[in-house]
Design a protein around this nucleic acid. Structure first.
Lengths: 332, 332
DNA sequence: TGCTGTTATGCATCCGAATGCAAAACTTGA
DNA sequence: TCAAGTTTTGCATTCGGATGCATAACAGCA
């Protein structure tokens, strides 16, 4: 009893009531006389008692934990998502068990821990295979995908409409007279990258145009490298579409710094995401801003609904991004 | 048994052994015959069994959870810290319970949940009052402060030497001939800001110089606003010391964009942290880079040591930042 | 073959809170 | 004042895995 942390029994003894009374006092929807409640709370405060969420989770089969799987926290876009998710879940009395994956291949091990902690649900901004998605079903853990679709399975997810966003960008760029397009993609295994690149490519095709596509990695360096390659080539593009803002920023930096180009007079560069630095005066990037607040809201709501009612059918909610005109591209 | 998740009893029954055997099979340091282990693992795989970390934590009094308290995930510096901490803890078989605080005042509620989940320890990059630090002791939760000292209490912490960093910057700036200094601070209640500002102020005084100090909020906007105020004044400073990189970037943007100044020819601007965007060609910020990897390493090590041996005395490890010369300041 | 030393095994109990059930304590109304 | 209805209360049990203890199995050795 010396160094031990106080339990409901300790509180009960001190307050002169039963352990059940203490338990009832600490969870809503139980009847307790006002007088007894006061005695219990006083005893609890005196002992510094806090109900043990672990023990309570064992019996109620609700851990009030949600796993959040995020692949790349270093991508400027995700910290904001993580912060919003955490705050929204927190407001619902739910804690976040964070899994920051270095590589998408870490998902496997991370999932084992997800099962072990008996989380009530999960939000995944990471690439999950069909087999992995099936594991969620098998373990009865509802999951909502963030900015990803599942390939085979049908899984609830929240997305920002990449196709629509790219269409908007392409249309406006074409209208303004651009004809030589290049695209810098993200990593091959990124769902978002594939969608954005394919969205832009398809829309360009619709206009009878073809784009030179070169690979990037979603980071500043690869955007810079991509621009370097494109601008060194015989025929320079007059518009570069980058699969995210960070690469667009890298491309702008390189175009200015190494080629002395004026943006957007000499070349138009656009991104996707609407991260904070994109709006800084040095860049004023023309981009599509994802409605992060609404998206995280939706993700949390969908997840909570499915925790309450696991039978709910999958649902995909697609949000439209807003065109931020910026000053990095000439638009029609 | 239908929709229920399999327990060690289910596995035991299927494998024809006792529940204890299953338990022993899943934790290291227990003796089990090779043949029996194989049977158990096979049965477990067949049922998709994973030990319940909640139940196990109840009896072992080790949740293998560590709380990470972070005040501002939107500050570009912290995502990296969070990612590194998570990965290091993960490697030790420890999961991260994330508390992303909107305001420092949220600490109170967050702490209640910290106690409830019986975390094994905590790492805090948030402002904790003396009373709050005492709560950690009372609840027997070891805590390591990240980039903060405690005011009253003596608490283990990991810091980047602000005084030394600012001294370095000031000395080099003074050597290069700067005489009119201004400082843009962070929020009043930020420990790091106070230390950096005071460090710079004291060192300037040592050189017989006084600095005009104006308040900021650690974000781009307030850096921009600060620079605007300073550059509009009758007497412009020839060097601006910002309490972090983000504000320095804001200041550079404003100086260039709104005042047409050339950096560093017309004015020197320096920051602190060494965040990624600081290195982008548009800024090439002169700053002090915190050794994040070594610092997170130290924080995790210190915490684990104290989880093993709670009697260890507090210890403060201070790391020296590296001067990144950049191109945003003329140095001596 | 018998003795000692080591490794495997199962039984029973424990961790700390939640809850169904039955009994007790109050209300209410006539 | 008493019966019926409602709210409080405590008892006993449960969740799922860990572990001390006693026993069983086995290896090693003379």
């Amino acid at each position: 009893m010396a160094g031990r942390r106080p339990t409901s029994y300790d509180v009960a003894r001190l307050a002169g009531v039963s352990q059940s009374a203490v338990s009832r006092c600490f969870r809503p929807g139980n009847s307790i006389s006002a007088e007894k409640r006061k005695r219990i709370l006083k005893a609890a405060a005196q002992l510094g008692y806090q109900p043990n969420a672990i023990a309570s989770g064992l019996i109620t089969k609700r851990s009030n934990l949600v796993a959040v799987l995020i692949s790349s926290l270093t991508n400027l876009y995700y910290p904001q998502v993580l912060a919003e998710l955490t705050q929204r879940l927190d407001a619902q009395g739910i804690r976040v068990l964070l899994f920051a994956l270095q590589a998408e291949s870490d998902v496997g091990t991370a999932l084992e821990h997800v099962w072990r902690y008996r989380v009530d649900g999960a939000i995944a901004a990471a690439r999950l295979s069909s087999a992995q998605l099936q594991l969620f079903e098998r373990h009865h853990v509802p999951v909502v995908l963030y900015n990803r679709h599942s390939e085979g399975e049908s899984v609830p997810s929240v997305c920002c409409d990449s196709i629509g966003g790219e269409r908007l960008l392409v249309d406006r760029l074409v209208e303004a007279g651009h004809r030589d397009f290049a695209i810098i993609s993200g990593p091959d295994d990124s769902y978002v990258s594939n969608e954005r690149v394919e969205g832009a490519r398809a829309r360009l095709e619709h206009h009878g145009l073809i784009a030179h596509i070169i690979p990037g990695q979603f980071d500043h360096d690869s955007g810079a490298a991509g621009a370097r390659a494109l601008l060194t080539a015989d025929r320079r593009p007059d518009a570069i579409i980058c699969a995210n803002d960070l690469m667009a920023i890298g491309a702008i930096d390189t175009a200015r710094d190494e080629f002395g180009l004026d943006i957007p007079a000499d070349i138009s560069i656009v991104g996707f995401d609407g991260v904070e630095p994109a709006a800084w005066p040095s860049y004023r990037l023309t981009t599509i801003r994802q409605p992060v607040r609404r998206m995280t809201d939706a993700a949390v709501t969908m997840l909570l609904e499915r925790i309450e009612n696991p039978a709910l059918p999958p649902e995909v909610r697609s949000f439209t991004g807003a065109l931020i005109k910026g000053h990095s591209a000439r638009l029609g």
